[in-house]
């Protein structure tokens, strides 16, 4: 196994995942628009184009910015191949990235290395299968029955506290997996600064808070890095060509 074989293998992987990632994403885009379109075309709901445009613009006013900011925010973490996976099924911060971190932690590989990237892609595939199967079975088939037996109280607690319950654990596992103590300290400091200072001074930045936290952490980690450390050979940084 030479460096050249490894380079070729990863190039082929990038090529395949980029092409098929794009194609599958376009397919899903078409189907997800065809769903409501079929209702409008085959049903007789007396809906005007104007009503749809008005409704969408109202939604876009809230969410369109995320459709631009989130891809930019998560690209440095998941890379090209992962982008077409995670933005297809969503649940990025609460499910897919935690799954990737667990797998990297389990195999003891770091994010950003080749082994780390492949482990993440496999983990996200595993999570995607659980996602699809569980939705089909528990919502598709048994959903209406479960709706009648799950106490509203349980659903309410899950809805309210699921995100903090996931995130606390993920932060710890991420810190252990990434093994960059400086970056961890910088990340926590940046987060505290953004949430408790910046957003209070400039609430208009609210939609960008994750991106700002990520950017400060990247810049901080870069400028405050240990300058003597040589780059990790595992990343397979090209050596002169």
């Amino acid at each position: 196994m030479t460096a050249r074989t490894a380079d070729t293998a990863m190039a082929a992987f990038e090529h395949t995942t980029a092409r098929w990632g794009r194609l599958t994403m376009i397919a899903v885009l078409v189907i997800s628009i065809a769903a409501p379109a079929s209702l409008i075309i085959f049903g007789d709901f007396g809906i005007t184009v104007n009503q749809i445009v008005t409704a969408y613009l109202a939604v876009a006013a809230v969410y369109l910015v995320f459709a631009v900011v989130e891809p930019v925010t998560y690209f440095p973490i998941v890379g090209q191949a992962g982008m077409y996976q995670v933005f297809l099924i969503g649940n990025i911060a609460n499910k897919l990235l935690p799954a990737a971190i667990v797998a990297q932690n389990r195999l003891n590989v770091k994010p950003g290395t080749r082994q780390g990237d492949l482990a993440a892609v496999m983990a996200i595939c595993g999570a995607a299968m659980v996602h699809v199967t569980s939705l089909l079975v528990f919502v598709g088939f048994f959903g209406t029955w479960l709706l009648s037996i799950v106490p509203a109280e349980i659903t309410e607690i899950a809805q309210l506290y699921i995100l903090p319950a996931i995130l606390g654990a993920v932060v710890v596992q991420a810190a252990v997996t990434v093994k960059q103590i400086r970056s961890t300290v910088i990340a926590v400091a940046a987060a505290a600064f953004v949430i408790y200072v910046l957003l209070r001074v400039a609430p208009v930045l609210e939609n960008f808070y994750v991106a700002i936290g990520v950017l400060i952490t990247i810049l901080g980690s870069w400028f405050l890095r240990k300058k003597t450390v040589t780059p990790d050979p595992e990343t397979g940084a090209p050596q002169g060509g």
Binding site: K110, K179, Q180, S183, T184, V210, S221, W222
Partner: peptide
């Protein structure tokens, strides 16, 4: 190349640190 060795891990930590911190004041 050194930057690309550092960025994915730092970005990951940055994202989860701030997502978590955002839950605390709630």
């Amino acid at each position: 190349p050194a930057a690309m060795a550092l960025i994915p891990g730092a970005a990951l930590l940055g994202a989860f640190a701030i997502l978590t911190m955002n839950e605390l004041p709630k």
